[in-house]
């Protein structure tokens, strides 16, 4: 029995010494802050920051090659925590979420053709410009939903919809959309214009029942041009998200019915 214990202890001792030596002479020293930063990042590995996963971003942050606050998923709290580890000041960031600026469902927006091919917006758009009459509208083939790391986007009735509660604002969908109609907007904003067509009223009307015609009704009702709640691009109203409107009454008055007041972006009428 004693021999056994001595034996095992001896083996253990030899191994321990060997390992200790190895650790001393062969070890690779890494900046310990990398691990600490990785720990405070959300760990979703969404790639929204532009780096290969959270670990890649942590390395870049420590190396000083990436700006702090690029992690949209972690938001402000995460940036603050990173700043604390790195010993720098963090600029306050506001949580932003994706908004699909189209509400032309199958029953509202005209389809000019019968698309037959891969279910992906980019290829559908490259096939005769897509089957939707409106050249600016959501095709509904789910390119954004496919890239969403949080499955926050779903397709209903030929239209992509973002669930605000799940969205982490990584912005991948913004890049994926061939029609460039997804925008990151402040999560606190509740009133939105769901249209992306800057054409004149009559040509919008020809292709969609709920397209913005640029009538300026929303602007007038929210205090006029001076109030600055809306901006106009051609004949398209856009919410000025640095000064968003607050009176929800204007939504119901929109003659084109392309405005919503909805905390979860569950649009549709």
């Amino acid at each position: 029995m004693t021999v056994a214990i001595v034996c095992i202890a001896g083996i253990g001792l030899v191994a321990a010494i060997a390992l200790a030596l190895a650790d001393k002479y062969l070890a690779v020293r890494e900046d310990p802050r990398i691990g600490m930063v990785t720990a405070v990042l959300p760990g979703a590995n969404c790639g929204g920051c532009g780096f290969a996963g959270c670990d890649g971003y942590a390395r870049a942050l420590v190396a000083g090659t990436a700006p702090n606050g690029a992690c949209a998923a972690g938001g402000d709290a995460c940036a603050q925590a990173c700043a604390k580890i790195l010993g720098v000041e963090a600029a306050a960031t506001e949580k932003r979420v994706a908004l699909v600026k189209c509400c032309g469902t199958r029953s509202e927006a005209i389809r000019v053709g019968d698309y037959n091919g891969i279910c992906d917006c980019n290829v559908a758009a490259a096939t005769a410009g897509g089957d939707k009459g409106c050249r600016y509208g959501c095709l509904g083939y789910g390119a954004c939903a496919n890239v969403c790391p949080k499955n926050a986007i779903s397709i209903h009735d030929g239209l992509a919809k973002v669930d605000k509660r799940l969205c982490i604002g990584c912005g991948k969908c913004v890049k994926a959309c061939p029609k460039h109609l997804i925008e990151l907007v402040p999560a606190s904003a509740t009133i939105h214009v769901l249209c992306n067509n800057p054409d004149k009223g009559p040509s919008v009307r020809k292709v969609c029942g709920v397209g913005c015609m640029g009538c300026h009704m929303c602007e007038r009702l929210s205090g006029g041009k001076e109030a600055g709640h809306f901006k106009f691009d051609g004949f398209l109203a856009k919410v000025n998200y640095s000064n968003p409107p607050e009176d929800a009454a204007i939504v119901a008055k929109c003659p084109a019915k392309c405005m919503i007041e909805d905390p979860h972006f569950e649009s549709g009428h």
Binding site: I8, I11, G12, A15, A16, A18, L19, A22, D23, L26, A27
Partner: peptide
């Protein structure tokens, strides 16, 4: 077990 564990640790470091 002891020996193998130590060996693997060693290889890991190396």
């Amino acid at each position: 077990i002891l020996v193998i564990a130590a060996l693997v640790q060693f290889i890991d470091i190396a």
